[in-house]
């Protein structure tokens, strides 16, 4: 390249090239970890999807199996956290944000079904894992404000909550199919409470807003299930 002029110091672009190449190397390094996480997330959701066709009485086994796959997810997240913590978080987080969300979605559903801190007795469903609890489980910081490190963001948590609501809506119907008329009531209340929470947020016109707009339809779906049950006098008598 016979550059005819001294106008551009070639060092400028060599330096920029080096910087950009460095970023590419970082991305390549993270790619494998993120792919493994994605794969193990799928395992978790595969196992947990059995909850839709398993009566509560037999759920113990599902939760146990889920815990095994969850542990591999936790390992992956630790690896990711280690590799990514030295990087500017928001420069690269779009690489793993989706995978982190599905990891959290799995955990939230597992927690709701009663898997978290399960001590072997009766399974107690209906728990909402807080963002702090998720941080403990995944062994990562959450919702950082100043420190530039790997963490779980509030937005990711909120996105995952929406996914949880969607999953529970499905579960409400499927519980009825399994002859479980109590679960829809529990879900109904839970989903409403979460929806009430989302309603006090001032969301801007972003993806969180768009997805949370759909929450009211999920709430309605669950209400319809409860309505169908009550119409047929199938609701368990409170007492």
């Amino acid at each position: 390249m016979a550059s005819q002029s001294g106008m551009v110091d070639p060092a400028i672009f060599q330096d920029l090239q080096a910087r950009v190449d460095e970023d590419t190397a970082v991305r390549d390094e993270l790619k494998d970890i993120i792919q493994a996480l994605e794969k193990h997330n799928r395992n978790v959701s595969f196992v947990l999807s059995r909850a839709h066709s398993t009566p509560v009485a037999n759920l113990r086994e599902v939760l146990k199996a889920a815990e095994e796959s969850i542990n591999t997810v936790i390992d992956d997240v630790s690896k990711l956290s280690q590799a990514a913590s030295k990087l500017p978080y928001y420069k690269f987080n779009n690489m793993w944000s989706r995978q982190m969300q599905s990891a959290v979605e799995g955990l939230l559903l597992w927690g709701w079904l009663g898997g978290y801190k399960y001590d072997g007795g009766d399974i107690k469903a209906g728990r909402l894992l807080t963002i702090e609890e998720l941080g403990e489980i995944l062994k990562i910081p959450v919702n950082l404000k100043e420190r530039d490190e790997f963490h779980l963001t509030l937005e990711e948590y909120l996105q995952s909550l929406i996914s949880l609501v969607e999953e529970l809506t499905r579960l409400a119907r499927n519980a009825v199919t399994l002859g479980d008329y109590e679960r829809p009531i529990l879900i109904n209340q839970f989903v409403k409470d979460l929806f009430a929470g989302f309603q006090i947020l001032n969301l801007k016109n972003d993806s969180l807003r768009r997805r949370s707009d759909g929450l009211k339809y999920r709430v309605k779906d669950v209400e319809d299930v409860v309505y169908d049950l009550s119409l047929r006098n199938l609701l368990p008598k409170k007492g």
Binding site: L154, A196, I200, L201, N202, L203
Partner: peptide, 19 residues
């Protein structure tokens, strides 16, 4: 709508502030 109640409201109030 001024006075939403529920088990998660306090948590979401924190979220609202941050958002």
């Amino acid at each position: 709508p001024e006075q939403p109640t529920g088990p998660f409201i306090a948590m979401f109030e924190g979220f609202r502030k941050e958002l």
